[in-house]
Design a protein around this nucleic acid. Structure first.
Lengths: 222, 222
DNA sequence: GAGCGGCGCGGTACCAAGTACCGTTATGAC
DNA sequence: GTCATAACGGTACTTGGTACCGCGCCGCTC
């Protein structure tokens, strides 16, 4: 082969192009392999299935999330959760245009949408288990953990979709704000009932202006 | 045919039995049809896919949920949501043992678990759209609606799983309690800040004792 | 009772995803 | 030069799912 572009990349490009041109179901694995200049066998050697070609390595990302969650104490649990979910968001954002093309496909093709949802559910499960362990065996904690995990993932999805639709200029900041809202939602009832305390979780290397802006955003749109 | 049992039922029983005996992937569509005493064509005439055999008519249930949500005003929105999600729970509970067998399968087989998750996501989408419309175009409402829809579905899943594991004697009551917690979670911040108001949403035909018990449960395990 | 139209069913053939296996080629170590 | 390894391609096979055709059964009409 003349091209220096790796096989995996060529396959992804070929698949995305063909899915756009002819639709997902109408595109056969042979055609993808042909356009990428490889055999059908090679396609399935690199990707487990036809869907897998356009989905990133979720397994690796799930592992990264698990790792980030594992390195945290009880005090830093919420920071770990926020960091971990930001990890996922940034992975998408790094993909840039490719993530947007995938989003356009998942919006049209039910099979791909289901696949995406199943992937997200794995993150949610991770968060649920982590939060449940963090909350301990108190009565009602299991439900609270499940609700909070769902909220975390939903916040992520919300911001991600906004970014995919080009409605979010600074997705990381929006995620921080959304996560702050989630955290406040689930920690407020346990507060001393002072009425209106808000918890904001941020990474440690933001500049003060950014922190101020984020806090302002959280407080002005509760 | 001698048996008076409908074909669809025979297919479901055959599929569940075979999945238990040999596992899901190891069971072929031919075998299911054979055991049910019909041809392979007939199987795919009644069910769109091999998975579909053991999953209930989600389409019909989704339609029922949509219908229940549609018949509600702004004041009764939360009651409609609670009723609708209870509709889904009770549909599972009515299935009884069959739901439990399916649960055992979805716990083992990744493909079936993904399928189940995708189905649940459709309910969640319905709730999200309904709640978003109910909340209106206020800033931050879209996120709040998404969080609340996720919480509603999670509450349902939590109770459902407890019932499937035989940990819930009265799933309807538990769902009421869980939903009350969800509603309070998302309505408390808008309250006059009196500190500790709890909203309980119940069906209108419960007897007073039941109402009292539910309220007690909600207040004692916040 | 003869015809007749709809309906549920079975069989065959076909398509495409995914798997298993084998042969080929290139690359690099010794 | 030889051998080992890894990546690739081709062929054949299994299986889920679709399309199509033909058969038998039931009820209806005349």
């Amino acid at each position: 082969m003349v091209t220096g572009i790796p096989v995996r990349e060529r396959l992804v490009d070929a698949a995305l192009d063909l899915f756009d041109e002819r639709g997902y179901e109408q595109t056969t694995a042979d055609e993808i392999a042909d356009r990428a200049g490889v055999g059908r066998t090679t396609l399935f050697r690199h990707y487990r299935s036809k869907e897998d070609v356009i989905f990133p390595d979720h397994d690796r990302l799930v592992a990264a999330v698990r790792e980030r969650l594992a390195t945290s104490s009880a005090e830093t649990a919420l920071v770990a959760v926020t960091d971990a979910v930001r990890l996922v968001l940034l992975r998408y954002v790094e993909e840039g245009d490719r993530a947007r093309r995938r989003y356009a496909l998942t919006s049209r093709v039910a099979a791909l949408r289901d696949r995406e949802i199943a992937s997200v559910a794995r993150y949610q499960r991770l968060f649920r288990e982590f939060i449940a362990e963090w909350m301990g065996p108190a009565p009602g904690a299991a439900l609270r953990a499940e609700l909070m995990a769902a909220a975390v993932v939903s916040a992520h999805n919300h911001v991600l979709r906004r970014w995919l639709r080009r409605d979010a200029a600074d997705p990381a900041a929006e995620l921080d704000a959304a996560m702050a809202q989630v955290v406040s939602l689930f920690t407020r009832p346990d507060e001393p009932a002072g009425g209106g305390s808000t918890v904001v979780v941020l990474r440690d290397h933001h500049d003060p202006e950014y922190v101020a802006a984020t806090i302002r955003r959280v407080l002005t749109q509760p």
